[in-house]
């Protein structure tokens, strides 16, 4: 296998209305086993994927929202959320799930995974990636 690459999973669609969010998450969980430098991006309607308190009872389909809180266990430490996308939808960081990862080097201290970044910062982050898988 080649050197470690920077893999970014770009999520731009709301969950549940279409399958993209869930099947993207499946790729992320499988991809974690490949020990690449992974990050997730949520922009446009994709920011809705991280909302707190999703309840799919009325829809009759599987609620996969709790799976996002397991990302830290898969060594996903970088989750970028676009600031403008949140603001355009009247959302703030408080509306999103509190996602953390445990830092082995600091006695497993919990650290925030979500970083809110501007459109310009996000453009720079995407520029630095080797592979961008968009969903």
């Amino acid at each position: 296998m080649s050197d470690v690459k920077k893999f970014c999973y770009l999520n731009r669609k709301a969950p549940y209305g279409t399958v993209y969010a869930w099947e993207s998450l499946e790729v992320v969980l499988i991809g974690a086993a490949f020990d690449q430098d992974c990050s997730l991006v949520f922009a446009d309607d994709g920011v809705y994927q991280l909302m707190k308190g999703s309840d799919t009872t009325g829809l009759g389909i599987k609620n996969f929202s709790p799976t996002y809180s397991a990302l830290g266990d898969y060594d996903i430490k970088k989750i970028y959320v676009e600031k403008e996308s949140l603001e355009e939808r009247g959302l703030s960081l408080d509306d999103l799930q509190h996602l953390v990862w445990e830092d082995e080097d600091e006695d497993y201290a919990e650290k925030d995974s979500i970083m809110v970044v501007t459109k310009d910062e996000l453009a720079q982050i995407l520029e630095e990636q080797d592979v961008v898988l968009s969903f």
């Binding site: 296998m1 080649s2 690459k5 893999f7 669609k13 993209y20 499946e26 790729v27 499988i30 991809g31 086993a33 490949f34 690449q36 080797d130 592979v131 961008v132 898988l133 968009s134 969903f135």
Partner: peptide, 21 residues
């Protein structure tokens, strides 16, 4: 085959191009 084939392709290729919605 499995999703690992997608990740492996991303690792092995010089460029990954996604066609979608």
């Amino acid at each position: 085959s499995g999703l690992g084939q997608l990740i492996e392709a991303g690792i092995e290729a010089d460029r990954t191009v996604v066609f979608g919605d």
